[in-house]
């Protein structure tokens, strides 16, 4: 029974982490994606590359630098310690920050692609009606791309559920705090508990498959 409750606890931490990360990304990503999709600035390419880094770098590389930054001696760790009394490394908050960076391209990328298809004529029409830029974004751009928003959110959520390397580097393995399912699975395999490993692995596999199937089906609905 201890085995099961341990898995449930890891599932809870995983779900909470993925939800928090997705929620923050769905607020932060649309403006960033809009800027990437529409700007003529010379900074667009460098910023896009920065956002896309997690796509190509081994997660452990990102995790390593984040660990340094979040450690009590690192800049973010020191600030967090001064403000909250605890450094970021090996905390849930630290994990959220890592996940946001890690999943950012999976939300920002699809959104920017969708935003690029925005009909500029409609934005002109809204401007001609006296609607300000921010209101145009909130009342026109976002609702017109609501499917892309949902798809980006699902991708971000599923990707956060599946992350491993960054969590291992900056989260450690604290039950109820930073132990997520992917880490729990690794533990089981190390302990040669193949039954427990199967439960976790199969659950993650089925979950991802079901979520993606439903998302792709929904995206095709008129």
């Amino acid at each position: 029974m201890a085995v099961t409750s341990d898995i449930v606890q890891a599932a809870w931490v995983t779900g909470l982490l993925a939800l928090t990360t997705t929620a923050i990304l769905l607020v932060a990503s649309p403006p960033l994606s809009w800027w990437i999709a529409r700007t003529g600035s010379k900074w667009r390419a460098p910023v896009e590359a920065l956002v896309a880094l997690p796509l190509v770098l081994p997660p452990t590389v990102l995790g390593f630098y984040l660990l340094l930054a979040m450690a009590p001696s690192g800049p973010f760790g020191a600030i967090a310690e001064a403000v909250a009394g605890t450094p970021l490394a090996f905390t849930f908050a630290g994990l959220v920050i890592g996940s946001i960076i890690y999943s950012l391209p999976f939300v920002t990328g699809p959104l920017a692609s969708a935003f690029r298809t925005t009909d500029g004529h409609l934005l002109e029409a809204a401007a001609s009606l006296g609607v300000a830029p921010v209101a145009r974004f909130l009342r026109l751009v976002l609702p017109m791309h609501r499917k892309a928003l949902v798809a980006a959110g699902v991708l971000g959520f599923a990707h956060t559920v599946g992350e491993f390397g960054i969590v291992l580097m900056i989260g450690g393995n604290i039950p109820g705090e930073t132990r997520v399912l992917s880490i729990a699975l690794f533990d089981r395999v190390e302990m040669l508990d193949y039954v427990g490993a199967h439960v976790i692995a199969a659950s993650l596999l089925v979950f991802s498959l079901v979520v993606l199937t439903f998302t792709y089906r929904w995206l095709r609905l008129p």
Partner: peptide
Amino acid sequence: AAHLRPVGTVFQEARLFPHLDARSNLTFA
């Protein structure tokens, strides 16, 4: 800026907002 100029434009094409019904298009401003 265009949205601050008190000028209303009717374009050659209707340019209605596809996600809104006619009433919400009318009251958009």
